[in-house]
Computed example of a mutant assay.
Amino acid sequence: MLFRRRTPPSRTEKLRVAVWPRQSWKRSLKYFGKRVLRLSASPHAIAAGFACGVLVSWTPLFGFHFLMAMAVAMIVGGNVLAALFGTVVGNPLTFPLMWWASYSVGHWILGHGGRPPPPLHADLFHAPWAEIMRVLRPMLVGALPLGVVSGAIAYFIVRAAVRAYQAARRERLAARHRPEAGHAPSEVPGE
């Protein structure tokens, strides 16, 4: 392969890079942003797809985010690839805050008011189904309004960014194809 490393990275190195990028988070986020802006679709489709990914990221159904984002994007006419990019909003750094917020909001919406949430079972992986649903129900209920609000915010930000990027790109391409001032257009040989 052309760009393969001579010595493959160890599992520890792969894990470290997954948690903390080699260059920096700023550079990784810039690259990610460029990937979204360069998608070839309408600004609405890209923004709608990205918003679907953001919305789905709030749910506690961790293993199904990609599938759910693709399904919701297809339903609303959003770009599926942008929806997959949108799910990156939910990541190991943001999940604890997102899940706490969705649990708290859901707990409040379900009418538990000012009462603090009941203590959780120490080991949810081996807890009875009723205990798991006592946690999942408020999280799912709270994820909906938080996901809709953050998805709407993401939609308007991404749509504006994609419109600006695509307009600038069209202008650059048009400037390349314009004949320079003062020069006659080149003649095509054989005519």
Rank of each mutant, 00 (worst) to 15 (best):
M1P: 11
M1E: 05
M1W: 02
L2V: 10
L2T: 12
F3G: 00
R6D: 07
T7V: 15
P8D: 06
P9S: 14
S10V: 04
R11A: 12
K14W: 09
L15Y: 11
L15V: 10
R16I: 12
R16M: 05
V17I: 12
V17G: 05
A18N: 11
A18H: 07
W20S: 09
R22P: 00
W25F: 15
W25V: 08
W25T: 04
R27L: 11
S28G: 01
S28L: 14
F32S: 08
G33W: 15
G33Y: 09
R35Y: 01
V36S: 02
L37V: 12
L37T: 11
L39R: 15
P43M: 13
I46H: 02
A47C: 05
A48G: 09
A48I: 08
G49V: 05
F50I: 13
F50C: 08
A51P: 01
A51Y: 03
C52K: 10
C52L: 08
G53I: 07
G53V: 08
G53H: 06
G53F: 12
G53M: 09
V54R: 08
V54W: 09
V56N: 08
T59G: 05
L61V: 14
F62W: 14
G63L: 12
G63T: 08
F64T: 14
M68A: 15
M68I: 13
A69H: 10
M70I: 15
M74H: 05
I75C: 03
V76F: 13
V80H: 04
L81Y: 09
A83L: 06
L84T: 07
F85C: 10
F85G: 02
G86C: 09
V88K: 06
N91T: 02
P92M: 05
F95L: 07
S102I: 01
S104R: 11
V105A: 06
H107M: 02
W108F: 12
L110T: 10
H112Y: 12
H112I: 00
G113E: 06
R115P: 00
R115W: 04
P117Y: 06
P117N: 03
P117D: 09
P117M: 07
P118Y: 10
P119E: 14
P119S: 13
L120E: 12
L120C: 00
A122I: 11
L124Y: 07
H126C: 01
A127T: 08
P128V: 12
P128E: 15
M133F: 13
R134K: 10
V135R: 09
M139R: 04
V141Q: 01
G142N: 00
G142S: 04
A143R: 02
A143N: 04
L144F: 13
L146T: 06
L146D: 00
V149R: 06
V149F: 08
S150F: 08
A154E: 02
Y155S: 04
A161K: 08
A161Q: 12
V162P: 01
V162H: 12
A164G: 08
R170N: 09
E171P: 02
R172F: 04
A174P: 00
E180G: 03
A181I: 15
H183G: 00
S186W: 07
E187Y: 01
V188C: 01
